[in-house]
Design a protein around this nucleic acid. Structure first.
Length: 491
RNA sequence: CGGGGUGUAGCGCAGCCCGGUUAGCGCAUCUGGUUUGGGACCAGAGGGUCGCAGGUUCGAAUCCUGCCACCCCGACCA
């Protein structure tokens, strides 16, 4: 069947790449590592944005915008932060070009060198905290609950469309608080917002937990993450929320007077989620026919395709189609009626399957005669014929069912591929053969974590919040451990 | 940065080893017609600095030298 896509089970990486290109989500650009996000891919991002934005607003946040450029010196203020990002920064050194005296084209004008180089933001903590210094004097100025939608640049050695690109789109929340407790509470609140979004909108089951010291955000006291499992058994970090303590307040000298008149440094959090989520959407749900979009994030939820032999038939069908579309739209659904004469119905069927449209309606002469429509659901590819006048009610319920079904399918996959392992031999063998999540004991040291990574390429994805206390022995060192942690190979 | 590979039409490739006159194939595109309930068919047409520069030769996509770009593996990567 799917002769236009590489088979998922034969070459997962190629299948992913093919799908991104063929479903017209994105493509590589003239700039190495940077992608062009095409209209259909961007429409998915807009759905993600709209939903998350409303969730941020509902939890008291507001949007703002800070500069793309960050003075180099800002980075060195926080030692761990600069260490973490130094190796992947794009740097602006000049501000002018001039014609090449030796030939055609232009060269960088050497006389236009910047006094201080500017870093293209890989993340905005430093530029934002530099502003917060001016905004915060008193506990009355707190909390500050700001989010920013923007692009960032991280000069990655090796890139993949959506999963790791040199430039990507994201949101980054940066909050300032009077107390440690409040900041920690914010950090937890936001990882919960991400998990809620992932599970209820992306239909993506996730594991919430703490990052180990080695995997923590550069400059954070604590990093919380949601980890998702992809269909090839690899983990994907889907969102992170950081408790930054007073690190950035100290680096940028942001102090405030508390209620008792005492001077103290401000407590910070930051949290982010990126276009990588589109990669997660693909790798978690898509199949050999193409994308499978959860209805809540699908730019088109229902597509109507007419089947006709001549213009008279098309006219009749169009009348019925437009009526159904109006009914579906009135009920809040996003509908496209594709009456283009440039492609045959079969081509359209395959194309909308490739693009993951949750529900397809086909209307032909047979249906007009019988007062019916044929509907097909993308997740299971099942077709049924229903009475035309029940379409709105039926499809409305069907979209809900598809949303649920995709989530259940992903949950079952996650459950089947999460294994409790107690011996090193099993650990290695499962990683090599089955992949997936592994819950195993760890002695808590960075040394052991590093050795496990070296030998197996598996990392600690997180220490799940809900991992129960139990006596055990470290999978690698045999030393005592009180909790299982989540291991996996990851993207 | 180390190892390997590839640059030929919008995309995917053949031709190169063994030099030869008009550089070919599939997809896509355009025109006309027949089609339309699962990726249509027939006929015709358009589209090329053969990555760049130099060299060898009567003659270079093909051989030689240099350069550039990209891809894969490794290193690197919250």
């Amino acid at each position: 069947m799917a002769k236009f896509l590489t088979n998922r089970d034969e070459n997962y990486a190629q299948w992913y790449n093919d799908l991104v290109i063929k479903a017209e989500l994105a493509e590589n650009s003239a700039v190495r590592g940077c992608m062009v996000i095409k209209p259909y891919g961007y429409a998915i991002w807009e759905k993600i944005q709209a939903q998350l934005d409303s969730m941020f607003k509902a939890t008291g946040h507001v949007n703002a915008y800070f500069p793309l450029f960050i003075p180099k010196s800002f980075f060195s203020r926080e030692a761990k932060h600069v260490e973490g990002f130094a190796k992947e920064c794009a740097i602006v050194t000049h501000y002018r070009l001039k014609s090449d005296p030796n030939g055609k084209g232009v060269i960088v004008d050497p006389s236009a060198k910047l006094e201080e180089e500017l870093i293209i933001r890989p993340t905005s903590e430093t530029i934002i905290w530099n502003s917060y210094k001016n905004w915060i004097q008193s506990y009355r100025d707190l909390p500050i609950l700001i989010n920013q939608w923007c692009n960032v640049v991280r000069w990655e050695m090796r890139t993949r469309l959506f999963l790791r690109t040199a430039e990507f789109l994201w949101q980054e929340g940066h909050t300032a608080h009077a107390t440690r407790e409040e900041a920690v509470e914010e950090t937890v609140k936001m990882i919960n917002v991400y998990a809620d979004f992932a599970e209820n909108y992306m239909a993506l089951p996730v594991i919430k937990g703490y990052k180990s010291e080695a995997e923590r955000f550069a400059g954070a006291i604590d990093t919380y993450a949601i980890e998702a499992l992809m269909q090839d058994g690899k983990a994907l970090q889907a969102g992170t929320s950081h408790f930054l303590g007073q690190n950035f307040a100290k680096a940028f000298d942001v102090q405030f007077t508390d209620k008792t008149g005492k001077l103290d440094y401000v407590w910070a959090t930051s949290w982010g989620l990126s276009t990588r989520m589109i990669g997660a959407l693909i790798m978690a749900h898509a199949d050999n026919h193409g994308l499978v979009l959860p209805p809540r994030l699908a730019p088109i939820q229902v597509v109507i395709i007419p089947i006709y032999k001549n213009t008279e038939q098309l006219d009749t069908i169009s009348k019925a189609a437009v009526k159904i579309r109006a009914g579906l739209e009135a009920a809040g659904m996003t509908v496209k009626y594709d009456d283009r004469d440039t492609n045959k119905p079969g081509w359209k069927f395959a194309n909308y399957e490739l693009k993951g449209v949750p529900v397809r309606i086909a209307i032909g002469p047979r249906d007009i005669e019988n007062g019916t429509v044929e509907i097909a659901r993308r997740d299971t590819l099942e077709k049924e014929t229903i009475k035309m006048d029940t379409a709105v009610k039926h499809i409305s319920a069907l979209l809900e069912d598809i949303q649920k079904n995709i989530y259940i399918k992903a949950s079952e996959f996650k459950k089947e591929n999460t294994r409790y392992v107690d011996t090193w031999k099993d650990f290695v063998s499962i990683l090599d053969n089955e992949g997936g999540f592994i819950m195993a004991h760890w002695d808590g040291t960075p040394e052991t974590e590093e050795k496990i990574k070296e030998e197996t390429k598996a990392t600690i994805r997180c220490i799940p919040f809900d991992s129960p206390e139990e006596e055990g022995k470290c999978i690698f060192s045999g030393k005592p451990s009180k909790k299982r942690v989540l291991f996996a190979r990851s993207y």
